[in-house]
């Protein structure tokens, strides 16, 4: 019954030959995650501000957006962007663009939560002190609230980035040639099952570990001074 030793012959040459393809896939995954992080952060800051605003309707719309995205699988959003939006007249350049659209919609909701908790964690005294020395609301945002908020959310932001990086694997479902797609390609075309999946898994793990340790350095550099 167990014949992995005898029945399966390892052949690493095919995976090694296709390493450039896997690197390209990894690079594309990182690019997708970075873009989603940055544009999603813009949505997130706007969303956090909207959820704290006194306009109930605006706050409710963003609350509904966050709850919707958090309770629906990313795959459904991706398929909706890929299959349904073009029918509604919203056409994307290619599958990468339509994935990225769904992905930004997705990351925006998670980042709204991240920035909302950051905004809530800013000590009351900072804003009061800023008011006391006569800063205008715009100056308070620019010089007090945003910089402090960024330091507070940095750990959560780096966690979100790493999970976004992992979520890019779902792009393979609509044929985006990222890392997981590369593994499926090697598996289906050359039957290099163990080699393909172990190399790709290792690439995900090593990249995530490197990102995590780099981000830890950044977090330490910008830690909130207590």
């Amino acid at each position: 019954m167990f014949q992995a030793g005898g029945g399966y012959h390892f052949n690493w040459s095919i995976v090694i030959q296709h390493l450039p393809m896997l690197y390209d896939g990894l690079f594309l995954a990182l690019k997708l995650a970075v873009v989603a992080l940055f544009i999603g952060s813009v949505i997130g800051i706007a969303g956090a501000w909207a959820r704290a605003s006194k306009y109930r309707v605006v706050a409710a719309v963003f609350a509904a957006y966050v709850e919707f995205v958090r309770n629906v699988p990313l795959l459904v959003l991706v398929f909706f962007a890929y299959f349904a939006l073009p029918i509604m007249g919203i056409k994307f350049l290619n599958n990468v663009a339509s994935f990225e659209a769904a992905f930004i919609f997705y990351s925006g909701a998670y980042l709204t939560e991240v920035f909302r908790s950051g905004l809530a964690a800013i000590p009351e005294g900072y804003v009061q002190a800023a008011k006391a020395i006569g800063l205008t609301p715009l100056q308070r945002g620019r010089y007090i609230v945003l910089p402090v908020m960024f330091r507070i959310v940095l750990p959560a932001l780096s966690n979100t980035f790493i999970s976004l990086f992992k979520d890019t694997s779902i792009a393979s479902a609509i044929g985006v040639k990222e890392l997981t797609f590369g593994a499926v390609y090697l598996d289906v075309n050359f039957f290099r099952v163990i080699e393909a999946w172990s190399v790709v898994a290792a690439m995900y793990l090593v990249t995530a570990a490197i990102l995590a340790s780099l981000l830890r350095l950044l977090e330490r550099r910008y830690a909130v001074i207590k």
Binding site: Y8, V193, W197, Y204, L205
Partner: peptide
């Protein structure tokens, strides 16, 4: 550290290799 999709594909393709 792994995407769930990678785990699912791995399980789907790797378990048969072991003969199960």
């Amino acid at each position: 550290g792994l995407p769930p999709l990678v785990l699912i594909f791995s399980a789907y393709y790797l378990i048969p290799v072991s003969g199960i």
